[in-house]
Amino acid sequence: MTNWIEACSVMISRHLALPDLVHRHRIWGPWSWLNVIIYFIYTVINIIVVFFNTHSVAQAGRRAGELALINLIFPLSAAHLSYLADLLGITWRTCCKIHQASGWMSVALLSFHVIAECQSREFNFPLGATRNIFTLIGSISLATLALTSLPWLRRRCYEVFLRSHQALTALFLYGTWQHLPDQSRVPRLYLYAPLVILALTTFLEVVNLCYTNGLFSGHGAPRAFVSFTAEGSLTYPKLRKAAHIRLVLPRSIKIDAGQYINLWMPSVGSWSWLQTHPFIVTSWSRGRHDTIELFVQPRGGMTSDLVSLVAGAPGCPVPFLAMFTGPHGTSEIVDGFETVLLIASGFWIAATIPYLKKMIHGYDTCTLQVRRLHLVWQIESIGEKILPLPHPSQPVH
């Protein structure tokens, strides 16, 4: 039975999951055959539910509105996708794809709901009514939410997008709540269900935040010691400025290779108290961590302000108050392989260092089956050096 499952998994990966039907684009993709099949099935199911046993367009439109609220249960289940992905045991990328698919499906269903209501003979929409004003506010919020979620606009101002996305979602939910009639109990249940789940996951996330940061342990909050590493890349202009963060924890935690944390540093800039940034943990230990090592490449916003603050004192760590959530993400399984190939380009070599340390330690202690380890690092210059890589002769703790 196990061999049959492994054979099916290999066949699905080789012919459906790995080959791309739509290659990577700045607006969409990449989509594999498996992605397209899943999206197609998801769309067909929603269409069937909307039009099954309906006798008019208005009836189908009302059903589409209720189905849109059901599709919104997943996008509204948690304030942060990282925590939701950890609860479900899936990767952050998979959680993002589900979030996007259900969100766009809700937008499509609500658009059909609005069009169907406008085409109805009983359509009457006086703007003097309070309910209709909130309906209009919710519709405008939804349209703005959809437009600002386009990739080319989202990537240009991601930090502004993130907060505006949450604010528009709250405004849309309030407008929807005011739009629903008082006697419509079932649609209101569809709206209350994700809000209850959101409140529960937010409470659990806050409790986990307080525990991991040791806020009530009497040792104070974590401190981030940031140092400027101008020598990180002397021949690669894009990486000429980088920062090294050493996060000292009041409570030790367990972190596996490939996991990341969301870091909050309120004193970096005027808007940094509203921002949390994900950083891959570059340190690894077989036990629990008392400190966390991070390597930061400035791109804009908080990371750029952080490097600017510490650039004047190279080699001298600057302390900052910090808090974090995590560790988030899943670790790739390397236990059962004798030959491992690691591929990285430029700055992303930092993400492979925990795996290198883990596998070298496993080889030295005979706890892993790894015998051959190949690292392919794409750089612009043969003299380029970003981070010191662990050597098998160096002890790894």
Rank of each mutant, 00 (worst) to 15 (best):
S111L: 12
V50F: 06
G258S: 08
T202W: 06
L198Q: 12
C96F: 13
P250T: 07
I38W: 10
G346A: 14
V22F: 10
F225Y: 15
L387I: 14
L81F: 12
F123V: 07
P19N: 13
G287S: 08
I253R: 09
F228I: 08
A116N: 04
G220L: 04
G315H: 14
G312W: 00
S120A: 15
M1R: 11
P194W: 10
I45R: 01
A79F: 14
P126Q: 06
H179W: 04
I353K: 02
S227A: 08
I197P: 02
Y211W: 09
L387A: 09
D290C: 11
P75T: 10
L18V: 08
P151H: 06
S331H: 00
R154D: 12
R185E: 09
F125N: 06
L321R: 05
L76Y: 12
A221V: 11
S106L: 09
S111Y: 02
L110H: 02
G65K: 01
T43G: 13
R14G: 05
I45L: 14
E332I: 00
F337A: 00
L189Y: 11
A17D: 13
D86E: 05
E231R: 13
Q275C: 12
V49Y: 11
V114S: 06
G65R: 03
S331C: 06
T235E: 11
V226P: 12
D20L: 15
R24M: 08
K385D: 15
G175K: 04
G232P: 03
L375S: 06
R63E: 01
H80P: 01
R288F: 07
T352I: 13
L306A: 15
P314N: 12
I41H: 13
V186R: 05
A60F: 09
A257Y: 02
V268G: 03
L387R: 09
A167R: 05
S227W: 03
S345K: 11
T169M: 10
G232M: 09
E231Q: 14
T282Y: 00
S56F: 07
Y211V: 14
L306E: 13
L234D: 10
A143T: 01
S331N: 05
A167G: 01
P327Y: 06
L142P: 04
K358H: 07
L368K: 00
R155M: 11
R223C: 08
R288E: 14
T148L: 15
A79E: 11
R246C: 10
I379Y: 04
G214E: 05
I12N: 07
E117S: 14
E159N: 07
G300D: 03
G362T: 04
L247W: 03
T367D: 02
T169H: 01
G220S: 02
Q369A: 08
V107M: 07
F125P: 00
S233V: 04
M359A: 00
M105L: 12
M359S: 01
L21Y: 06
